[in-house]
Simulated assay, not measured.
Amino acid sequence: MSENYIGGFHAVMAALEDGAVKPFEILLSDSRQDERARRLLAAANAAAVPVRQVSKSDIDMRAPELRHQGVLALIPERELLGEDALEAPASPERIFLALDGVQDPHNLGACLRTAEAVGATAVIIPKDRAAGLSPVVLKAAAGAAERVPLIAVTNLTRTLEQLKERGYWVTGLAGEATESLFDVDLTGPLVLVMGAEGAGMRRLTRETCDRLVKIPMLGKTESLNVSVAAAVCLYEAFRQRQPGGKRR
């Protein structure tokens, strides 16, 4: 089995406490003698995961692209889920977040983090021309990638059509939309679709949506970062699903 790695205390603790597959080994900087390091050592001991204390430069060389905070966990390379993970019947509490070609791993990680926070069913991404699971994504997700499914599909448009046939309402975010996010009903089986950085949704994806909405903005900013926009949309759907939270 090939290996990957995750860095940062949040992500490594999540892998120890919540991950379906535990790390093979944890590398901990010998300069970390603080309370966070002691909690991690205790969690690793409880999970029977070996911890090897090494120099910070050793961790830097293994993961030069990560802000690892002096901790790195070696984990089995995680395979993305496929289309068969979407076959369950629609039910009112289910929310999918679909990302149409998001390429920045930090944005994908942040979207996973918000999706997990609001209890989203899963995040859907295309297999090609989009960010996938990587150490940077896992670090940005701060443990959420261990808790929310990430589903990679061959054809996002076809997947959205299939979800519509199963009873989901597909809502896309687009700057040219006339309806406000805050004026539409986001309860019931829902797919929220976000476009790529800069380019937005592809034409076929946009045409597949049941409706397009926009986030109202009073300032001069033309658009929000995709992960920020996803957070706004997910939390509006979350708010509407709370007791007394339906749209006005």
Rank of each mutant, 00 (worst) to 15 (best):
G7M: 11
A98Q: 03
R36F: 07
D100R: 08
A140Y: 06
E222A: 10
V226R: 14
A231V: 14
P23H: 09
A37D: 07
K139L: 12
L192H: 13
L186H: 00
A152Q: 04
H10Y: 13
F96T: 03
Y168G: 05
L27T: 02
E116P: 06
G175F: 04
L150M: 12
K164W: 06
G132M: 13
A177F: 05
D100E: 08
F182Q: 02
L66K: 01
G8D: 03
V213A: 03
T157A: 10
F238W: 15
A88N: 06
L224E: 04
T178H: 14
A130I: 14
R78N: 02
E35P: 08
V137A: 12
N4F: 08
S180M: 08
D100P: 13
L173P: 03
A231L: 10
L112G: 07
G198V: 07
V153G: 04
K22W: 01
L97I: 02
A110P: 07
A98M: 02
V213M: 04
Q240W: 13
P105M: 06
A90G: 04
A90F: 02
R113K: 14
N4S: 14
C111W: 12
L186M: 01
P189T: 05
L16V: 01
D18V: 12
L72T: 02
R166Q: 14
A130S: 15
H68W: 05
L86K: 00
L163N: 06
A63F: 00
A122Y: 14
A142T: 09
P89L: 00
G132F: 12
S91T: 05
L41F: 07
E79Q: 15
A14R: 11
L150C: 06
A237Y: 09
E146V: 03
E179A: 13
S134R: 15
T121G: 10
A43N: 04
K220Q: 09
V184D: 09
